[in-house]
């Protein structure tokens, strides 16, 4: 059984009472995929393609309209309060904005310790040494333990968020655009850290990003999302060498290359009215929308 299995997940947003059109938005539409134990999956796509909605549904921060989600063989959508909390020890998250995802009134050490308290792990002394260990692991100085989030740079805050997510030893980490708020040098060092932690702690990542290169560095497989649907799922190398869907091709053409950067050519994204069919297996492990 896969670590995470998502079947026919849909999330619709209907217009509010103020909207004139009464339009229904299919933010996530019939999305199915699996992530095996120890494997990482990158989800890439344009802004507004439903990547974040998908992550929030899996974390049960949003209730999906229909579909099924299994995590470690348990039906996530049927879990209630206490059971859900227990499950979250194994399924953790890092969010895009390191300024709003850390409580400004808590010290770094408290932020990282909090999950241990919630899950009743260890005594105060064990917790303190675990927090210090996590701080080392994410490459922060222990002098920072008693500082508040505002004293850290964006890259350092993202490391605190990572330490908080990993402190209970989860089997899966959902990272929603963790690099987006950082400059290139910080992006590079955070990604290198995540690559290392993935191997050391044997964590599966569900890595959501619009950077297809960073996804390929961290994940064995990549899923491309477009207009709420998966349009292509393939091993990272296959996706780069033989992309099939027109949107994937446009996305890959947009990946910057320093040497050829002068001849900037805008890739033509496919017509937005293109009808999207079901995924079929074009070659072993390489799925594409008809």
């Amino acid at each position: 059984m896969a670590l995470l299995e998502v079947r026919q997940l849909r999330k619709l947003f209907s217009g509010t009472r103020f909207s004139r059109t009464g339009q229904v938005i299919h933010a996530v539409d019939s999305v199915s995929f699996e992530v095996e134990n120890g494997e990482s999956l990158g989800v890439v796509g344009e802004s507004g393609s439903g990547k974040t909605t998908l992550a929030r549904c899996i974390l049960r921060l949003l209730e999906p309209t229909s579909g099924e989600i299994f995590f470690e063989s348990e039906d996530l959508l049927s879990l209630g309060g206490g059971e859900l909390r227990r499950m979250r020890r194994k399924l953790q998250a890092v969010f895009q904005d390191p300024f709003s995802s850390l409580n400004p009134r808590m010290r770094a050490a408290q932020i990282v310790e909090e999950p241990l308290i919630i899950h009743r792990l260890g005594n105060p002394q064990q917790r303190r040494s675990r927090v210090e260990e996590m701080f080392h692991m994410v490459g922060l100085e222990t002098e920072g333990l008693c500082r508040f989030p505002h004293a850290f740079s964006a890259g350092q805050r993202q490391r605190i968020a990572l330490a908080r997510a990993l402190v209970c030893g989860p089997s899966m980490l959902i990272a929603d655009e963790p690099l987006a708020a950082l400059d290139l040098v910080s992006q590079e060092s955070l990604l290198t850290l995540m690559e290392r932690l993935k191997l050391e702690m044997k964590i599966s990542f569900l890595f959501i990003s619009h950077g297809v290169v960073s996804a390929a560095r961290l994940c064995e497989r990549i899923a491309v999302m477009w207009r709420g649907r998966l349009v292509e799922v393939a091993p990272a190398r296959v996706l780069f060498t033989s992309p099939l869907h027109p949107y994937t091709r446009a996305l890959l053409r947009a990946v910057p290359d320093l040497e050829g950067a002068k001849n900037l050519r805008a890739p033509e994204p496919p017509d937005r009215t293109l009808r999207l069919g079901e995924l079929y297996e074009a070659s072993p492990g390489h799925w594409v929308a008809a």
């Binding site: 290139l184 992006q187 290169v213 390929a216 560095r217």
Partner: peptide
Amino acid sequence: KELLQAARRFSKSAILATI
């Protein structure tokens, strides 16, 4: 140099060489 190195590691040729 650091900025350029980071940019190169996110480029297409770098990723094709490693995956």
